[in-house]
Nucleic acid binder design. Structure first.
Lengths: 352, 352
DNA sequence: ATTATAAATGTAAGCGCTTACACTGACGAG
DNA sequence: CTCGTCAGTGTAAGCGCTTACATTTATAAT
């Protein structure tokens, strides 16, 4: 009795499908990629064979031959935090709608790790890359250019960056919020920021606050800023530190909502009421901002819109449709309850 | 004047490196993959060429030839929610430490999307897959088996599942929490659960509550359960609904922290104090649970440990080291402030 | 019917890498 | 001095797919 050679336990290949359908591999390939270049009857036969064999194209082989992966990579600073979650979810949905798959990896806010991940994704054939912000060394942009992998920056807007961006003006947004704080009578203002090194969003937000201070003729040198990593507990600690000063601030602006929630927590521990004793503001308007109490006055960022637009723009770049795609999205101040008039001020501008 | 053929603008290949170093492609390949099989002097020369050319191996080609990708795929129900974030972060870190890359995609809690993503990741050559829970149709497991792609389930433990799991006993954990609730005098108990269809974690948690009820000789039929998707606002709405009953519950157990925070929010809107008027509990112990007020009494799940162990177990499976790796992790009840004695009960068992 | 033209399909050459196998030369044993 | 051994390299055969080009077949115009 002969061994049954055809007992094919391995995963079927294009060749198997072709043989089964009685056509050439080219035809099978066309059925899968350009169905309209194959006559109906043949296509039906091929598709049947595909189904019968449960054929799935080998991705690596396809990539190698076609030099396209329909894969977009995204490298975000962290997954362990909701800041990027919503925008990324929208980004993925939009990609999916256009037939692309998203690969996500995180850099832990470390430039060297980010670079490694960029190379890994490019090596894996990502057709395009979504990066957060603009802060990175020139060589990596050159690398991307050499590899001809288009990249787009999000969560930050820069008119003439090395790569186009879909984002918002962190500086102007923070400035607007700070002006509101100042309008409410606050003069002693402090800030808890994320680490600004290698993070243009954080840096721009700081600058925005300074802009507002200057515009109101307040002394920028008086501004105390504590930089810390994005964790609730760190926000609490920084806040405690700030309030231990001889002349503690009456308003603490935070670089993001996570830090602001931490500050809130710090205030609670110190027995301070927000906003009666001290005002706190956030940035990003993640869900957390709404459900914490008091609910955070913060800068609303259109995360979902940003994700969606970034996806469309990036795919356009990948498919070579358009060139310049940068877009500046509008942010707004979301007034909730963590910001109030400066204590000791007689006149609340909103209730004169 | 002849065109300068050697002006190679394209990305360098193994061949280019080999030529530059004056060796064969096999040697270059060996330098990269089995450095000790090449003599020092040659290796140095090759490495120099690699550096000079800024050579990066073509991933697809490597995969195709070697049939290994050093890539692990993970499919989680959603990224738009912190439940999986921490565990996944730990998972990625552990993978990275062992030289693997993580590819994440999300299924939006939809079985059909999950299946699509599984196939996509397998096609992309994932060496192994991390899946959440055990609820999926048999054919997909057969597919995985046929493709010889090992998979591991996390966030759920099942002794004899189709695939091994690194998780915890959702049922026992919820039962333990419910017993605590009952011990505090609560008799009218309700639950807000995630959609249990296709979600074994949600289902097990419901069963756990029922177990506790039965053990305390309470009528399971009296238990009202509202199922809704994991969003804060849905938790609030479900809570409001529950409290509008003729005989509202005195304790509302939630399928997870997000829903519990929503319930809390609902209570606030209704003017109910937690836990004086009504008790609320969560599940998962994500950061949110600690910072919401009142801080949530919830089930603590060792997310980071789970992620780490899952990574190690999965890699062991991929590398064929071990076979059975299932592990049941311990959970604990995290007592905070959202659970109190039943109102109207004279005796608080903790302060008799 | 005949031929020009277009549509459908087949042929086969890679894509860039790994690896089985072949080869070379140095070394120690006999 | 010869031969077997073996470490270090080279040769070349794929891996499974896409696609330019060649070939065949259908369609339309004469």
């Amino acid at each position: 009795m002969k061994a049954d050679i055809s007992k094919d336990d391995a995963t079927p290949t294009l060749d198997d499908v072709a043989r089964k359908a009685g056509v050439s591999t080219a035809t099978v390939s066309r059925c899968l990629n350009n169905p309209d270049r194959v006559v109906e009857a043949t296509r039906a036969r091929v598709m049947e064979a595909v189904k019968a064999l449960e054929y799935t194209p080998n991705f690596a082989a396809r990539v190698m031959a076609a030099k396209r992966t329909f894969t977009i990579g995204a490298i975000i600073p962290t997954m362990d935090n909701a800041i990027f979650a919503r925008g990324l979810q929208a980004f993925q949905e939009a990609l999916h709608a256009r037939g692309y798959t998203l690969l996500v990896s995180s850099s832990a806010y470390r430039p060297d790790v980010e670079e490694e991940q960029i190379r890994a994704l490019v090596a894996r054939g990502a057709d395009g890359l979504l990066l957060i912000g603009h802060d990175r060394d020139a060589p990596i942009y050159e690398y991307l250019e050499r590899q001809k992998v288009p990249a787009l920056a999000a969560w930050s807007f820069m008119e003439d960056g090395q790569i186009p961006s879909i984002g918002f003006d962190n500086r102007a947004a923070m400035s607007a919020l700070a002006k509101e704080v100042i309008r409410l009578g606050h003069r002693r203002i402090a800030m808890i920021s994320g680490i600004s090194q290698g993070n243009d969003r954080a840096r721009e937000r700081i600058e925005g606050l300074k802009d507002a201070l200057r515009e109101s003729a307040l002394d920028v040198d008086d501004l105390e800023i504590i930089e810390t990593t994005y964790e609730v507990e760190n926000g609490a600690e920084a806040f405690t530190q700030l309030m231990s000063r001889d002349v503690p601030p009456t308003a603490v602006l935070c670089g993001n909502d996570v830090l602001a929630v931490g500050a809130s927590l710090g205030a609670k521990r110190l027995g301070l009421r927000v906003p009666q004793d001290v005002s706190i503001t956030g940035f990003d308007d993640i869900e957390l901002a709404r459900i914490t109490s008091p609910a955070l006055t913060t800068v609303h960022v259109p995360h979902r819109e940003m994700g969606r637009k970034a996806a469309d723009a990036l795919i356009d770049m990948v498919e070579g449709k358009k060139k310049v795609v940068s877009a500046k999205l509008e942010t707004s101040i979301k007034k909730r309850h963590s910001l109030g008039p400066c204590p000791g001020t007689n006149d609340d501008p909103d209730h004169p």
